[in-house]
């Protein structure tokens, strides 16, 4: 208890808000991890192993990519490097999150929050107005990880419990959530609008132009685009200048 001295973890209310706001993540995760569960059972993993993978990793791209290495008995070095590269974007996200936390938040809380840095949880956390309270993060993490592990178990056990047409539509939930997060701020800030459009355009090029698409993996694609576009935007429109230029209202990420 002494460690909590001066540390504001937030309240039960923050925890509840986190739980509620994580429901779309949870639904999207069930759909995605359901597919992971099916794939994992295909290569001979037990339901327990599949669930354990999801519980300990919580990373869609990382887990899917690991399956091929495990299936062909690849080397540990290969697996480690693959995970490092595909999940490198979490490092950028953790850096950004470290700025949202009160400097007084202790190491233990930080280690708990670290466990749940995923694309979706990060998105909700970093755009939360004002400070990020650990209790809010815990709410997000508990509900999201529940969906991630639950979907994995369903997929591994039942193979195809839900009708395919439902799974098909649930695949949109995660993207719908991303859109709900980034699009509103494009109305307030032209720089954000530029960032969103540039990132989507580059991503399209990286996906469809044959030579590039074949050589750059989806994990690297996201790393390169993020660094290039965010650096360009930071150079062209540093937030000190753009934030107050239009309506006088502060843009989304500025500390309140």
């Amino acid at each position: 208890m002494k460690k909590n001295f001066g540390e504001n973890l937030g309240s039960i209310k923050d925890f509840k808000v986190g739980c509620i706001e994580a429901i779309p993540i949870c639904l999207g995760y069930i759909a995605v991890s359901f597919a992971f569960g099916i794939e994992a059972s295909k290569i001979g993993m037990t339901t327990f192993q599949a669930a354990m993978t999801s519980l300990l990793n919580v990373t869609s791209a990382g887990q899917f990519s690991a399956l091929s290495v495990i299936a062909r008995n690849g080397s540990f070095v290969e697996l480690a490097v693959l995970q490092f590269i595909i999940n490198l974007r979490y490092m950028l996200m953790s850096c950004a999150l470290s700025q949202k936390l009160d400097p007084k938040v202790g190491t233990l809380s930080r280690m708990c929050i670290s466990y749940g840095v995923t694309d979706e949880i990060f998105a909700l956390s970093v755009l939360k107005k004002g400070r990020l309270y650990p209790m809010y993060s815990y709410g997000l993490i508990v509900v999201s990880v529940f969906g991630w592990v639950f979907g994995t178990i369903l997929g591994a056990i039942a193979g195809q419990l839900l009708p395919q047409r439902l799974i098909s539509c649930l695949g949109l939930a995660i993207y719908g959530m991303f859109i709900a997060i980034i699009i509103p701020d494009t109305r307030k800030s032209r720089a954000v609008m530029g960032v969103v459009l540039a990132a989507m355009a580059l991503s399209t090029v990286f996906t469809y132009v044959p030579l590039i698409a074949d050589t750059i993996s989806s994990g690297f694609r996201i790393i390169i685009i993020t660094i290039a576009v965010a650096a360009a935007a930071a150079f062209i429109a540093p937030i000190g200048g753009t934030v107050k230029n239009s309506s006088g209202a502060p843009a989304g990420g500025e500390q309140a």
Binding site: M93, A96, D119, V196, M200, I225, T226, V229
Partner: peptide, 13 residues
């Protein structure tokens, strides 16, 4: 500024 723009770029991509 870079960190501020990171989520928009990542999620859009």
């Amino acid at each position: 500024s870079f960190l501020y723009y990171v989520p928009y770029a990542t999620l859009a991509a």
